[in-house]
Design a protein around this nucleic acid. Structure first.
Lengths: 345, 345
DNA sequence: CTGTTAGCGCTTTCAA
DNA sequence: TTGAAAGCGCTAACAG
């Protein structure tokens, strides 16, 4: 019971060219025939054969990728790019192509520059990690004007409205971390939140995690967990050591690091022969994974960065090739990773 | 630099029909021209355009699905079927179709019967959960003869060799469970493994989990965890209560249920007002999830049943449409689910 | 405004 | 053994 353009044309006493015109809203069709055709389309629930379509139309869809440079220090950013490339290889025969632009994770200017270069390529859609809220906002406005769909991955700037967001619920992930520490610590104890970050980071994302973390303990009635907090805005070893010297005490039970820099804390602990703290951090970057395997980090929370990339490509492909809507918010699972299950992620 | 059949034909001074014949090994081609064509194919690394291919060949690939009846008691089995259907809807335009056959989870005969009915439909590939090793083995032999690829999902019967397996590493998942309990229990304590299963189940799968669980504690040098074990082969409330009355003691710290029947244990505990045991089970079936949300189960381990179904369809599609090989073993992650992250799975 | 037509790259039948 | 040709369902350019 599949109806084709040819069938519709026949029933409407028009040519297939005309049907094609109304299906693609390219005008130049009288209201009468347009109506007649549409009613047949609806009556029989016409679904275009996308295989035939992609074969016939040699159209190329260009997806602009604007991501942090995976080679610049923070190895985390290789993961979403891997996901993007993997997905691209699967949909390339639909005429989906990418043009990649990388920016320096620590430079707003670099984001801005790359964004401009990207726009110069006139992409049909854009995927970006909106590390810098202001610059991402500018990009978004440009795109809205030209009606280029934009998908954010990784993090969400609170007041921006991209066509879609793919990432983790940061607040809730903080709660997950808290519940794990709570499970290991029993009724009462002391935990420390160590935020190694400076104002150049997309701090609100990390802050949401901390807020979630605190909210968990705030709700607990029968446990008495004392939460201390420290922010360290210099990333070098000495600054971190100085800051931690004051905060790491014997009575401390657990440590929560709300971003991928847990390994820096463990570096310090190892150097100072401090053991027995429960530690939980984020992201499966090499240095964190090594410490996890060595038993020096208890849990890492993963945001499925590859899958973020994969999903972003898939959702834009569906949008452009099949005309499907973009899901406004797509939260990925909050994966709990330990020494014992790390091999399967 | 894409080469087409037409180009190959031209270079070889033959018609495109002949090229097609050698590409599909349908003979009726002289060794000479065959060789000439193949060398061109290799030289230019010809990749068929699968879009054009599927459009031209109206071939239908039928995938036989042989799974436990999702409506018969064990609600778990709806999940892989959902995954299968989801993936099917994505690849249906490649001419992939399914014919479903369900069997009674507790009846070997029913598996056998359904397998025969399925084979009568002469499917091009088969997906099954090999709940009964012997019967699955018979099916496998039949398929090997007719060279029908078979993919197992969920569990693996130790000495069988399907073309592919998609599921979880059962042994390692038991280790994950153990490490979680260990995290919550500290240096020493008592844990109980409750295996609610009868000989009709595919017990080896569950046994692997228990083995993994034990292996974890066996390796621990500085913790003294005493592991008790009980098997209950009747599923009714009374039998379970009788069995547990003897085993659940105040000094018990943790309970591990190596299959989806954790809720039956929690039913008992609730009825008897027993609290404060750390509990870990498997699978996100409704009853387990309710107890997880209520804080009566600490962790559930999930095997991504939907994804098992999705992957099975995808890997067979790649095999049949694109001629790619089937991955022999595809282990899915061992997801750790808590009250705090359940909403995102 | 509308119809005609020539493909897209591959498969498949029929004839030679 | 091989070649020629008619499609698969849809697009897009051109003619009217």
């Amino acid at each position: 019971v599949k109806i084709r353009i040819k069938d519709i044309a026949q029933r409407a006493n028009v040519s297939s060219g005309t049907v094609d015109r109304v299906l693609h809203n390219r005008g130049e069709v009288s209201e009468d025939t347009r109506f007649k055709i549409m009613s047949i389309v609806n009556e029989f629930n016409y679904q275009p054969d996308i295989v035939a379509r992609t074969l016939a139309s040699k159209r190329i869809f260009k997806i602009g990728i604007l991501m942090p440079d995976p080679n610049s220090g923070i190895s985390y950013w290789q993961a979403p790019i891997n996901g993007i490339n993997l997905a691209l290889s699967e949909v390339s025969h639909y005429g989906i192509e990418a043009c990649n632009f990388y920016f320096d994770f620590f430079s707003k200017q670099s984001y801005k520059d790359s964004a401009l270069k990207l726009l110069a390529q006139s992409p049909d859609a854009i995927i970006t990690a909106p590390i810098f809220a202001d610059q991402a906002s500018t990009l978004l406005s440009h795109c809205k004007e030209k009606s280029i769909p934009v998908v954010f991955i990784d993090s969400m700037s609170n007041n921006l409205e991209p066509n879609g967001f793919i990432g983790q619920n940061a607040f809730q992930s903080g709660r997950v971390a808290a519940s794990l520490l709570n499970f290991g610590i029993k009724e009462n104890g002391n935990v420390l939140v160590i935020s190694i970050t400076n104002e150049k980071d997309n701090t609100s994302h990390f802050q949401n995690r901390v807020d979630g973390f605190k909210s968990y303990f705030a709700e607990k009635k029968h446990t008495y967990i004392n939460i201390d907090y420290i922010q360290i805005s210099e990333f070098d070893e000495l600054s971190i050591a100085n800051a931690l010297d004051k905060k790491i005490k014997p009575e401390l039970n657990g440590i929560f690091i709300p971003n991928s820099r847990a390994f820096k804390v463990v570096n310090y602990l190892t150097k100072n022969n401090i053991e027995g703290k429960k530690i939980i951090g984020y992201d499966l970057i090499d240095k964190n994974v090594s410490y996890l395997r060595a038993g020096k980090i208890d849990f890492l929370i993963s945001q499925r960065p590859e899958e973020q990339g994969i999903n972003a490509i898939h959702c834009l492909t569906k949008k452009m090739v099949m005309g499907r809507d973009i899901e406004k918010i797509h939260f990925l699972p909050i994966d709990i990773i330990t020494k014992e299950n790390i091999d399967f992620y």
